[in-house]
Design a binder for these strands. Structure first.
Lengths: 341, 341
DNA sequence: ATGAAAGCGCTAACAT
DNA sequence: ATGTTAGCGCTTTCAT
């Protein structure tokens, strides 16, 4: 900081209050003469005056900050969400503090508190873990929090995520329509709502064609490549009758691809794969993945909107608190029909 | 905000100064009795006291904020840089505000000013465009700025980027070693230092084997997929004798891949490709790209370190201001030797 | 049409 | 060992 309002005022020969009002466009509301107002503005320009947002924040009790916490910023999914939040926020004059929880609740909590102390006006968080207590507390304490991606059942926070169940059902039908009946599920983090809903969407689609959901075909403990790889490997030996995989994330799918290679199963000829979530260049992969794409931009945008609205304190409590954004099937070339022998 | 220091003080039956000091670990420095100190802490706990960082910032003239501005947060390269900056900053108790300039100088400037007004203690920016004046001004005005990735020649700001020249030379040698002599260059944004240095590294490697650099083989105007695609297409018809491409970015390479497909040139058999910069799952691409990988994490980490050091105002001006981090060749399978007819 | 002054929540002299 | 107070830079009543 280098120039303060009082210096501007002095240079313009007015009081700080007049200076403040002139600079904030309250000139006419306070009947400040045009001459004075422009004199102030000129002084400000000459001095290169930039108002201290910190002082402003303190006085106004409004920081213009929104906090975003994601589990892994280098993951394109979260990077895109962060981006669309940032873009929406910037358009409204807000700035975004992003924090990376490295997939650990412990960090998430620490960062959340840090952001609370910085008096962000709202928080959008893609939570790790399966507990929402700390989030609810923050919300209760006064900082509105909106959940994105990983949401929680019976939790009254604002939430935006994909239509996991219907998306998963679509994905499964892509497989069953080609005759697949023994489908391995490479799941993400059990207990999280996206995971459970995808599971149930999968079971639903299976039921439609009269096949029972077999829990022993589901494996995995995270949305990571490692989990996808390990699960696929195991499943491939345990259940040699598997003809297709439904991977719950892009990394899960990549793991499956590697496992298939190591097990000399050709995709899609010997093994079909469908993945939830898309990724850049998926069409240029050695096997172009057929996916159910989430509308990441929309998720971010919606989350930002809810957050900003809450920040502004729009007391109109009529806003929808849960948003489930539609998914879209992207057909490429990782599914073939099962050969009936 | 809900509880203030004075409330804590009142509840503990002490003055605000004692409260402040107890809570900030200055207890013994001020010879505050253990009894008092713990009484204060207890009161704070009970009230759920969280000190206002805003007030603190104003008083201390230290916000604990560092600003990061990147051209495109959804680009894995910048996402990773942001992540490693965030991680480094968080480790030091700083928070980072990220801003996305959408590849436009105009936005970059606006965001930069916004961050300046928020009194970030340092700025790390991956600048768009080819002008550094506004950045130098900010630095002069008091907010230390460090440049990452896109740096500028004769600019006295702290800068960290890759060893573009030597990296590009390595890449080119990968090609020439396989007998390639007519190499199309899919360049990024002309005028930027990374671009120019890669160009010169390329020319250098060519010279080593006695082939002259032919400017008509270079094409492109950005680090985007579109630029890579268009340039590759054009080059492929203009110069049918081209046997290899050197793409200056992953997106450029992806564009080339598509162009090759459309022109029915098989990679690597009919056409070799080497790319500067790596990307996730590059090994699972339909053609596994041989690349010269930048050490993104190191770049981010170094940038954060320089920024934080400057923020703290370490007056030891002996710190190196330019860092060029090493690149690494990742050999995969997008290069074959040229068939001599 | 303009100014004086209080105060946002905190820290750090400067008293005792 | 603890309390009083000034003040960070700003906005906004309340006077005039």
């Amino acid at each position: 900081m280098v120039t303060t309002l009082s210096q501007v005022a002095e240079k313009a020969g007015v009081s700080v209050s007049v200076a403040s009002r002139s600079l904030n466009g309250h000139a006419k509301a306070y009947r400040i003469s045009d001459a004075t107002a422009s004199r102030v503005k000129e002084a400000a320009d000459q001095l290169g005056f930039r108002p201290s947002q910190t002082a402003r924040s303190l006085r106004l009790k409004k920081t213009g900050l929104v906090g975003v916490v994601v589990p892994d910023l280098s993951n394109p999914f979260f990077a895109s969400i962060s981006q669309s939040i940032a873009l929406s926020a910037e358009a409204e004059g807000y700035s975004v503090i992003v924090a990376d929880s490295r997939e650990q609740t412990e960090h998430e909590i620490r960062l959340l508190h840090q952001l609370e102390d910085r008096q962000v006006e709202a928080l959008v968080v893609c939570p790790v873990g399966t507990e929402s207590k700390h989030l609810q507390e923050i919300n209760k304490r006064g900082t509105p929090v909106v959940l994105a991606d990983r949401t929680f059942p019976n939790c009254n926070l604002a939430q935006v995520t994909s239509e996991h169940r219907v998306g998963a059902a679509k994905a499964t039908r892509l497989l069953t329509a080609q005759g697949h009946r023994v489908i391995g599920v490479l799941q993400g983090l059990p207990g999280t709502l996206p995971n459970e809903q995808r599971l149930s969407g999968h079971a639903e689609a299976l039921e439609e064609i009269g096949v029972a959901f077999d829990p022993s075909l589901t494996m995995g403990n995270n949305f990571t490549e490692a989990s996808g790889f390990d699960s696929a490997k195991k499943l491939l030996v345990d259940r040699p009758d598997i003809t297709a995989f439904f991977a719950f994330s892009t990394p899960n799918a990549m793991g499956a691809l590697r496992a298939a290679m190591e097990s000399s199963r050709l995709v899609p000829d010997d093994l079909s794969i469908v993945a939830f979530d898309d990724c850049p260049y998926a069409d240029l992969m050695s096997v172009p993945l057929t996916t159910v794409r989430q509308d990441v931009d929309r998720i971010g945008q919606l989350a930002a909107e809810l957050a900003l609205r809450a920040a502004v304190g729009s007391t109109s409590r009529k806003r929808k608190r849960r948003h489930d954004v539609k998914t879209r099937v992207i057909v490429r070339n990782s599914i073939s029909s099962v050969r009936h022998s």
